[in-house]
């Protein structure tokens, strides 16, 4: 039996993008408490509302390494896949009833005011063979 609040629960990934200035707030002693406080509160609210499935923050993009196979050969490159103004800083998977509800949670993410949040439905598993 399914609980009453969500009729057809769907999972969405909320991809949290930050600008470089926002990311730097992580490490600046003057801004770090506010930065982490906001994220802790946000994740706490997701958990408290019972919609949080999983999620993680990511190390900054200078730690990224990108791999691709070209003509059977490995190509390993320093840095992220694409050099953009905003970088993926973390993600959460939420289970909610609709896209509208997922957008509400996305708007509350601290990086929604200092970057953006991309919301995508999680692909359901392929049908059993």
């Amino acid at each position: 039996m399914r609980g009453p609040p969500t009729e057809n629960p769907m999972q969405f990934m909320l991809m949290n993008y930050e600008t470089a200035a926002e990311r730097d707030r992580r490490d600046d002693p003057a801004t770090a408490p506010a930065y982490w406080g906001a994220w802790t509160a946000y994740i706490g609210a997701l958990v408290g509302a019972g919609v949080f499935v999983s999620g993680n923050g990511l190390q900054p993009t200078h730690t990224a390494t990108t791999v691709r196979m070209t003509g059977g050969k490995r190509q390993v490159q320093d840095g992220p896949f694409a050099d953009t103004h905003e970088h993926l800083a973390g993600y959460s998977i939420v289970e909610v009833a609709s896209l509208d509800e997922a957008l509400e949670w996305a708007a509350r993410a601290p990086c929604a005011s200092a970057g953006s949040v991309e919301v995508r439905p999680v692909l359901p598993p392929p049908p059993a063979q």
Binding site: A41, Y42, I43, A45, G48, A107, R108, S113
Partner: peptide, 18 residues
């Protein structure tokens, strides 16, 4: 208070609550 901060969209309001 933590729950309130986590649920608030408006940055200015969130800063105030903090």
């Amino acid at each position: 208070l933590q729950r309130a901060i986590g649920l608030t969209e408006d940055l200015r309001l969130r800063d105030f609550l903090a």
